[in-house]
Nucleic acid binder design. Structure first.
Lengths: 214, 214
DNA sequence: CCCAACGAGTACGTTTTCGTACTGAAAAAA
DNA sequence: TTTTTTCAGTACGAAAACGTACTCGTTGGG
């Protein structure tokens, strides 16, 4: 039984959802907005390993039987949703086989996304990685606007802010996006998909397969 | 009940364990040797997203309720172990809550490894990534010898063969390893750990926490 | 024993990304 | 409004890694 435990809330950008090493207090179901899951190491190297939106749920470790956060998770694009306390969430999973199966598939989908992030990080050029990120964000928002500074994009991709600026400028010249200070709007999604090539798409298709047919 | 279904076998290097898009037929428990899990996309970009040795089990998707392989999995360093058919494995997990909990934690450990691979791919230099890989392989072998060509190392790291050759040569000059054709021997593990810095270690520590105490 | 295949050392010009930093415009704060 | 801060455009030399390719020693098969 999850319904009665759900607490509705709005989530502002930068709002922290999980802190590495600390207990996971709630699982968040987003309706609007995008959360970033960022891996951090002991020397403060950091990079985004996945994003979560309406299609998923935060707190993957809870599904795996662990209550400690590995990664830093926070809202990258503000929105709204519901959350459920850790114990209620784990209790629900323990009691309902079908619920557990569902969340396991959702977690599997997130794993695939992380694996492809590793692939993109190792093989793709900055431009392709940026395109991939924009597409993933666009999939999870209702409007075409992506309210983010180049600085934050750079942190997530693990590259220089200046590099992101140049790449976005290139996209703008090609008519793929328009920009305002602190905001970027997707104009030609198909063109961005072309830039991303096969670095985008597989996790999305696989998640669909997992949650639908089989 | 897993015991009666286990089939002992030796595993030669390059032996294929899973093929992307195809059903997973068995879960493999390695005693000796190292398996590589390699993500592939539609344009044949590929990169290793994790390794599995005695500490884990292949076929993570089975644990998550999916019977289709996402990634290419094959033996990178030959060895031996046991395997169990997919249906027996899934049946065992379905029947034993404690078994499922155990494998879920193992899968969680693998997720953490993949996330840190994404981090290393995006942030670390070739030299550091190579060091990280050698340490992960060394953790999973009994001898200090790593029987691999530069070519295969390069494929796993997603870099040029020549780049690996140069980096290994550097390690050799620093007295960290010795090399023979198609083989590399770890001489100074601590020195290699120093090169890898914080790109190595977190997944290892977390797996330990997951499987031991808590 | 010889030869073809393979693995590794090396080179070189090119591309990509980096680190850094300065500037001006836009937005927020005073 | 004025001041301060934030954000983005841009520059430039340096470092890292790339693609390619040639050589040569090892190794295993014929």
């Amino acid at each position: 039984m999850i319904g009665p435990h759900l607490e509705a809330l709005t989530l502002k950008e930068r709002q922290v959802i999980e802190v590495p090493g600390k207990p996971i207090t709630h699982a968040y179901f987003l309706e609007i907005g995008v959360a970033s899951v960022v891996a951090v190491d002991g020397e403060d190297h950091r990079i985004e390993v996945g994003v979560i939106g309406y299609e998923g749920v935060t707190g993957v470790p809870l599904i795996m039987g662990d209550a400690r956060a590995q990664h830093s998770t926070y809202m990258q694009i503000g929105g709204s949703g519901h959350r459920i306390a850790q114990d209620a969430f784990c209790g629900a999973i323990a009691q309902s086989e079908s619920l557990r199966a569902l969340f396991l598939k959702s977690a599997q989908g997130f794993m695939i996304q992380t694996a492809h992030t590793a692939l993109a990080n190792g093989r793709a050029k900055l431009e392709q990685r940026l395109a991939r990120w924009l597409l993933m964000a666009h999939d999870r928002t209702t409007s075409d606007a992506v309210p983010l500074t180049h600085e934050f994009l750079a942190v997530m991709l693990g590259v220089r802010r200046a590099g992101v600026s140049v790449a976005i400028h290139g996209f703008e010249r090609k008519g793929l996006v328009t920009t305002r200070r602190g905001q970027l709007t997707i104009v030609n999604r198909a063109g961005i998909e072309q830039v991303a090539g096969s670095f985008y798409g597989t996790p999305e298709a696989e998640l669909k397969r997992l949650l639908e047919g089989k």
